[in-house]
């Protein structure tokens, strides 16, 4: 392993660890009771279980698709290191959108507004990095999605979450008029 690869590996690992720490801090700040753990009721827990299941199935489906493409010698324009993030993205995106559409995303102790502000900030930050690296030519290395693909996946995920939340809010608004 050369010094460049070692540095890159250390950088990504450190970035992920800092990311986890930031997520934990955001969770404490954004929860009404200032606790790290989000509370869900019994219906939400069942829906979240289904969300995890569909997330897992979608990861398997993506693995099978990649396997078929590999047999056909078709290469996706993504670096192998970024391919792992594509699996995470597919799984998390499926789980999160399922939970949002089944009212199981927001916990009982979540402050939605604070979370949405954080999401907006994270999405904007990642979109900024994607645009900057796209302009400088660092996003794609030899025609393949490089290390900054992490930011591309994050940006895509948060934009997707934003769209799903907006759709669900509209659906709830129209359904609320009938129920209350």
């Amino acid at each position: 392993m050369d010094a460049y690869s070692l540095g890159k590996m250390t950088g990504v690992t450190a970035g992920l660890l800092i990311g986890f720490l930031v997520v934990a801090v955001i969770a404490v700040i954004c929860n009404k009771n200032r606790k790290l753990k989000t509370q869900y009721d019994e219906r939400q827990q069942i829906a979240r279980g289904k969300g995890f299941r569909f997330g897992f199935y979608s990861m398997i489906a993506w693995a099978v698709i990649n396997e078929i493409l590999a047999f056909g010698a078709i290469e996706l324009p993504i670096e192998p290191a970024m391919m792992a993030f594509s699996y995470i993205f597919i799984g998390v995106a499926t789980d999160v959108t399922y939970c949002i559409f089944h009212d199981a995303y927001w916990g009982l102790n979540n402050n939605k507004m604070r979370y949405l502000i954080c999401f907006l900030f994270v999405a904007a930050l990642n979109v900024f990095v994607v645009i900057r690296t796209l302009r400088s030519g660092e996003l794609f290395v030899d025609g393949r999605l490089g290390t900054y693909g992490i930011n591309a996946f994050c940006a895509l995920l948060f934009v997707l979450i934003g769209i799903a939340i907006a759709i669900q809010m509209i659906r709830e608004k129209s359904a609320g008029k009938e129920t209350e």
Partner: peptide, 20 residues
């Protein structure tokens, strides 16, 4: 100590609550 959507789902008959 549940979400509004859970009460709504029970009233609509979309969810069978536990005995608790």
């Amino acid at each position: 100590h549940v979400s509004r959507q859970t009460i709504n789902a029970i009233e609509k008959g979309d969810y069978n609550p536990t005995i608790n």
